[in-house]
Amino acid sequence: MTTLTDPAQAPARSWVDPATTAPAPTLRETWEQTLSLAGRALLRMRRNPETMFDVVVQPLLFTAMFAYIFGGAISGDVSSYLPLLIPGILGQTALTACMATGTQLREDMDKGVFDRFRSLPIARIAPLAGPAVADLLRYAIAATLTILTGVLMGYRPGGGVLGIAGGWLLVVVAGWSLSWIFTWLGTVARSAQAVQGISMMIMFPLTFLSNAFVPVDTLPGWLAAFVQVNPVSHVISAVRDLLNTGQVTGEVGIALLGCAVVVAVFAPLAVRSYSRKV
C-alpha cells in the first residue's frame, strides 16, 4: 500500500548554509507569504460557504427591517430615511463582517496548522494578514449588497457613480482596518466563544451608540458626546458625504485617519501576542 522513502531515489540535498540566509523576511517575501495565506483563506471560504452567510443575509435583512421600522418615525417616510440609513447599515455590516475575522482566526489557531505556521521561516504577520486580506472579499460583498438593496428600495444616492464607488471603497477599507481589533482579540482570547462574546460587547455599543440610525441632535447631550467621538460615527458620516453628495469632506479624512490609527495600534499588538502564544 505504501512506498516509503527510498534514499537512492531521493534528490540531491541542497544544504542550507546558515551564514547566507537572511536574518529576517524581506518586505517582498512578507507580501508573497501574505498572499499565499490569503489564497488559503479564500479556499477555506469556498469549502465552507456557510461562513459567508452573515455578509450575504445581513445587508438584505437589516436594510429592509430598519428602513420599514424606523423610516416613518425618524424621517417621515421610508425613502427619505434611506440616505441616512444606508451609510449607517454599511458601517454596521463592515463592523459585524470583520467581527467574524477574530472568531475564525481563534478557531484556526486552535488547530495544528498554526503550529506549523509558527515553525516556518515566514513573517510573523503573514498568518494574520493573510486572512485579513481574504476578508476584503467579505466586506466587498456586504457593501455591494447593502447598496443594491437600498437602490432596489428606492435609494438614489446624490453622489453618483463616483460617490458610490468612493463610499463603497471607504467601507471596505474601514472593515479591513477595524478587523485588526478583532484579530488582536482572536490572539488574546482563550476560545472562539470568548472572542464572539467580547466582539458582541464591542460591536453593539459602537454601532448603536453612533449616528448610524438616528440623527445625533435627537440624542441627550451625554450620549451625543460619545457618539461624536465614536470612530464608527466618523466612518458613517464620511460614507454619507460620499454617497449623498459625492464630496470628499473632512469627515473622509478623519475616517481614514481613524482607520490608520486602528491598524497602527492593533496590528503590532496582534503580531506580538500571536508570536508569544504557547
Binding site: T21, P23, R44, V113, D115, R116, S119
Partner: peptide, 29 residues
C-alpha cells in the same frame, strides 16, 4: 528566523490544514 530556515518540525499532532487536500497543503507550504 535563520533557525527556522534550518529546521523541519513535525509535531505531536498533525499540523496540516484540514480544509485543504494533501496536494494543496504541500503546495501552500
Amino acid at each position: 528566523h535563520r533557525v527556522r530556515r534550518l529546521l523541519g518540525v513535525t509535531g505531536q499532532y498533525a499540523s496540516v490544514d484540514e480544509n485543504l487536500t494533501a496536494t494543496e497543503n504541500l503546495r501552500l507550504f
